[in-house]
């Protein structure tokens, strides 16, 4: 899993000002599951999973996902934002081990 933290963002190719744009994002991450011992008790340790996803557009937070271990491996999230001005869309993924992965997309109007 050398690719941990690789972020892919997919934004529609042509955006008009004022459009509500749907963005799809994916991050390569193991999203470790809770492990249990033979008695079914949870093994206590710091599981490595993403617990926060922050989407910012033009420096303003548009959406925040607080996630748990019930989210699939290599998590995929989609969301919308209203494209008002050209600028940067940034998606940050934070995991429980302090990892911080981010992907950016430049929003331009055709």
């Amino acid at each position: 899993m050398a690719d941990i933290g690789k972020v892919r963002l997919r934004v529609p190719s042509s955006i008009k000002p004022g459009d509500v744009v749907e963005v799809r994002s994916l991050v390569i991450h193991p999203m470790e599951r809770v492990e249990r011992d033979a008695q079914g008790k949870i093994v206590q340790r710091n599981y490595n999973y993403i617990n926060k996803v922050i989407v910012t557009y033009l420096g303003k937070t548009v959406a925040t996902f607080d996630t748990t271990q019930s989210v699939a491996e290599n998590p995929f999230f989609s969301f919308t934002f209203k494209a008002t001005d050209p600028g940067q869309l940034k998606v940050q993924f934070l995991d429980t081990t302090g990892g911080r992965y981010e992907g950016t997309a430049d929003i331009k109007f055709a």
Binding site: V20, F65, A72, F79
Partner: peptide, 26 residues
């Protein structure tokens, strides 16, 4: 039925334009 039932909580701002979210869950 998940052992951890809460999968995600999405916080949106009006700037999102539409109340939408998508994710892959277990």
């Amino acid at each position: 039925k998940n052992r951890i039932p809460v999968v995600t909580r999405v916080t949106l701002a009006p700037e999102a334009g539409r109340a939408f979210m998508g994710a892959n869950i277990r």
